[in-house]
């Protein structure tokens, strides 16, 4: 085990090279709907339980299924109303279970990125070969069902190994060259994209995905009241929008169709979307587009700045 994963060096937020988003936008805004499949009776991972109760875990399974049966359409409609194309964090088995949802998102030109195969299969305990197989299976599923070359990763249920990001980048290269496997949502260390150091030296970035704005973290872990969540989204935006005048920032709302799309929470979410997209200098985009823009325009100067600032005077 390591004290530091070694993905990045210290890089102070002040005085970085200016990030310029398309059309002079101050902020890149993206929404990442997690579309997940939780199995009712998964094999028991030795390091983490899928459900608190013995089989059948009616309560936890039901509300997650609610998300797919009921919540997805609501969220998709409200995102469409405000011109947001979702960047889907996908349990890729959903391509088999619920292809209707995949088709609806694909018709709207949404991005699909990998969130593993099932959200009840954890990386913990996998050998390198097993994790590589799982990552490859998920990326191939997305390609087979949507034609997309998967660019991003959020590990299933945020379960990682030390090699997760290396393997994702390497499998992406094997399958799609530089067009696949080039960004991660697994790290929460910054409000701007940052280069990630991998064993393959691939140009690979971390894109801000924000645990704090994640509806499940807010509603389930932090037990935030719905209208307060809406206010938190607006406050988060206001500050990042103001700071984006100096250098482009990123705001992400990670969502779950079983949380944000419940009838008592839709109003707060919709009001925040209306507020955010009502501003002029907002680049409403996807995870892939943010990563591509950063790699093409700011990756090298960022590396130079990080190296320069790490050196002691």
């Amino acid at each position: 085990m390591k004290a530091d994963p070694g993905f990045y060096d210290y890089w102070p937020y002040e005085d970085r090279p200016k990030i310029e988003w398309p059309n002079g936008a101050r902020i890149a805004f993206w929404v990442a709907p997690n579309i997940e499949f939780y199995e009712l009776n998964p094999p028991a991972n030795p390091y983490r339980k899928a459900w608190p109760q013995p089989y059948p875990a009616t309560q936890g399974y039901s509300i997650r299924d609610y998300g797919n049966r009921v919540g997805h359409m609501r969220q998709m409609e409200v995102l469409e109303r405000y011109g947001v194309r979702g960047s889907v964090s996908l349990s890729t088995a959903l391509c088999d279970h619920h292809p209707e949802l995949i088709a609806l998102c694909a018709e709207r030109d949404w991005e699909f990125f990998s969130h593993g195969i099932y959200n009840t299969r954890y990386t913990y305990g996998m050998s390198e070969a097993q994790e590589r197989d799982m990552i490859r299976d998920a990326m191939e599923s997305i390609h087979k069902h949507t034609g997309q070359q998967c660019a991003g990763y959020l590990a299933p249920a945020l379960s990682h190994s030390e090699l997760t990001l290396d393997l994702f980048a390497e499998v992406g290269t094997e399958l799609f060259g530089d067009n696949g496997g080039f960004y991660t949502c697994d790290l929460f260390h910054d409000d701007q994209p940052t280069p990630i150091r991998l064993r393959s030296d691939k140009r690979f970035v971390s894109i801000p995905y924000s645990l704090e704005m994640n509806d499940t973290i807010a509603y389930v872990v932090n037990r935030v009241e719905p209208r307060r969540y809406g206010q938190m989204l607006k406050d988060n935006f206001d500050r990042l929008y103001a700071e984006g005048e100096q250098s482009g920032t990123v705001m992400c709302i990670p969502t779950h169709n079983y949380q944000v799309s419940c009838p008592h929470r839709m109003k707060a979410f919709e009001e925040a979307l209306e507020y955010i997209t009502g501003h002029s200098d907002v680049w409403v985009t996807t995870g892939r587009e943010i990563a591509q823009h950063f790699i093409a325009n700011h990756y090298d100067e960022s590396l130079q700045d990080i190296a320069a600032r790490g050196a002691r005077a």
Partner: peptide
């Protein structure tokens, strides 16, 4: 470290 094959 390896999981039983049922996990995949």
């Amino acid at each position: 470290m390896t999981l039983d094959k049922e996990h995949l």
